[in-house]
C-alpha cells in the first residue's frame, strides 16, 4: 500500500508540482509507464479545477491531494472546499461559442483519461476520485 498526501496553496504555479508528485508516486506504486501521461494530465486537470474554486471562494484554504493504492488499483483523490463553478456549454455543445468553457473541457479530459472517475459534491466541498490499474507484479506487493 502506498499513501501520500499533499496539500498546497491554491496557486496555479503549484499545479505543476502536484503533477510531478503524482507521476512519481504512480510510478513507484506500479502504474504502467504507458499510463503515466494520463495520470499526469488527469491530476493536473483536477487540481486546476480545485485551484479555480479556492481562488474564488477560499483563497486561504489549501487544495488537498491524496494518493493511495489498494485492491490492485492506484487511486488519486483531489479535494477542494466549495463547489467548482458550473461548466458552461462545455465541449459537447459548441466549443467555439463557449470559448471560456475550460471547466467543461476539464471534466471531459478527466473522464476521457482516467479508468474510473467519481465526483462527489457537498456543501463542504468537491472530491474528484480517479483510479488506474496497477501492473501485475507490483499490484501483488512485490518490491519495485
Amino acid at each position: 500500500m502506498t499513501t501520500v498526501q499533499v496539500s498546497f496553496t491554491p496557486l496555479p504555479a503549484h499545479v505543476r508540482t502536484a503533477r510531478l508528485i503524482a507521476v512519481a508516486v504512480a510510478r513507484r506504486s506500479g502504474v504502467d509507464e504507458s499510463l503515466l501521461d494520463e495520470v499526469r494530465l488527469a491530476v493536473g486537470e483536477a487540481c486546476s479545477r480545485a485551484v479555480e474554486a479556492h481562488r474564488e471562494q477560499y483563497p486561504g484554504e489549501p487544495v488537498r491531494v491524496a494518493f493511495d493504492s489498494h485492491d490492485g488499483r492506484f487511486e488519486i483523490e483531489v479535494a477542494n472546499a466549495g463547489l467548482v463553478a458550473p461548466s458552461g456549454s462545455g465541449p459537447a455543445s459548441d466549443p467555439v461559442a463557449g470559448a471560456a468553457a475550460a471547466p467543461g473541457f476539464s471534466l471531459a479530459v478527466i473522464a476521457g483519461l482516467a479508468d474510473d472517475v467519481r465526483i462527489s459534491e457537498s456543501p463542504a466541498g468537491t472530491r474528484v476520485t480517479m483510479s488506474w490499474p496497477l501492473s501485475g507484479s507490483l499490484a501483488a506487493g512485490s518490491p519495485a
Binding site: 493536473g44 467555439v96 470559448a99 468553457a101 471547466p103 473541457f105 476539464s106 479530459v109
Partner: peptide, 19 residues
C-alpha cells in the same frame, strides 16, 4: 510537452477571435 484544458480554452478563444 504538456497541454491541459486551460490551454485548449486559450486556443479556442484565439480561434473565436480570428473567426
Amino acid at each position: 510537452e504538456f497541454l491541459d484544458s486551460t490551454g485548449l480554452g486559450v486556443l479556442v478563444g484565439g480561434l473565436k477571435r480570428v473567426r
